[in-house]
């Protein structure tokens, strides 16, 4: 993928991909185009060159809403919940495009995040940061996506909550959902990653399994702080 918002390209021949049941993590220094790369896969960035393929189908020209219908779920980094609406209403809105019964999906989200069941009648804006992220992920899960895109799901939450969130993300991947996420906490994220992409200035610098990247001395030195 190559593209950007204005005349200058932010992404330069950047390639990312993820398979069913896998977790792929994009890491890299600030301004490397991590979030941009993810937005590009979701159709929020005009591409000059390259394609976005989904299940063998070229979806490069679909709008984000249309990609949701195809089976992509996206959790933005900020403003990712309806703050004035209750937790349950957030989940209902996540399933807005579905015509069938959504009670099962809501129940699944509550099983994954039991705290949300307790707080189902509370406005999402009153929840803590970690709980909000759970609502945000839960909302995106409601469309039963095949690919879930998470933009820094652990931004601004405590380390304990972060571990907890990562555990849940692994659980979601085990159900066969492909997960692509951008992470600031590179070390922890690569530990759970099947695939890792290290982006620098909008291009792939290293691509390997999470484990291999963690073991790679170059990666360690430049991005993981030794």
């Amino acid at each position: 993928m190559t593209g950007g918002y204005g005349a200058a390209d932010i992404l330069k021949e950047c390639t990312i991909g993820v398979d069913r049941g896998e977790i792929a993590v994009i890491v890299g220094p600030n301004g490397a185009g991590k979030s941009t790369a993810m937005k590009a896969t979701f159709g929020m960035l005009p591409l000059r060159e390259g394609h976005v393929m989904f299940d063998g189908e070229d979806i490069t020209h679909l709008k984000p809403e249309e990609r949701v219908v195809k089976g992509m779920g996206f959790v933005p980094q900020t403003h990712n919940v309806f703050t004035s609406m209750t937790v349950e209403e957030n989940l209902e809105m996540g399933a807005f495009i579905r015509e069938d019964d959504i009670a099962d999906s809501i129940e699944q989200v509550y099983e994954l995040f039991p705290i949300l069941k307790e707080k189902r009648r509370q406005p999402a804006g009153e929840l803590s940061g970690g709980q909000r992220q759970q609502v945000a992920v839960g909302r995106a899960m409601m469309t039963q996506p095949k690919v879930l895109l998470l933009d820094e799901p652990t931004a601004g939450v405590s380390p304990i909550v972060m571990d907890e969130l990562f555990d849940r993300i692994i659980e979601i991947a085990r159900t066969g959902v492909a997960i692509l996420m951008v992470e600031q906490n590179a070390k922890q994220a690569l530990e759970i990653a099947d695939k890792g992409y290290v982006l620098v200035q909008g291009s792939n610098r290293f691509t390997d399994t999470g484990e291999a990247l963690l073991a790679n001395p170059d990666v360690r030195r430049s991005f993981l702080g030794g």
């Binding site: 984000p64 809403e65 949701v68 219908v69 996206f74 933005p76 403003h79 990712n80 919940v81 309806f82 703050t83 004035s84 609406m85 209403e89 209902e92 809105m93 996540g94 807005f96 495009i97 909302r139 469309t143």
Partner: peptide, 22 residues
């Protein structure tokens, strides 16, 4: 109602409402 809730969702967070297919 679903329609009413979608109005509130749109009012609350337009981008997220679009992402949700409203």
């Amino acid at each position: 109602t679903r329609t009413g809730k979608s109005m509130r969702a749109f009012s609350d967070n337009e981008n997220l409402a679009l992402l949700s297919g409203i």
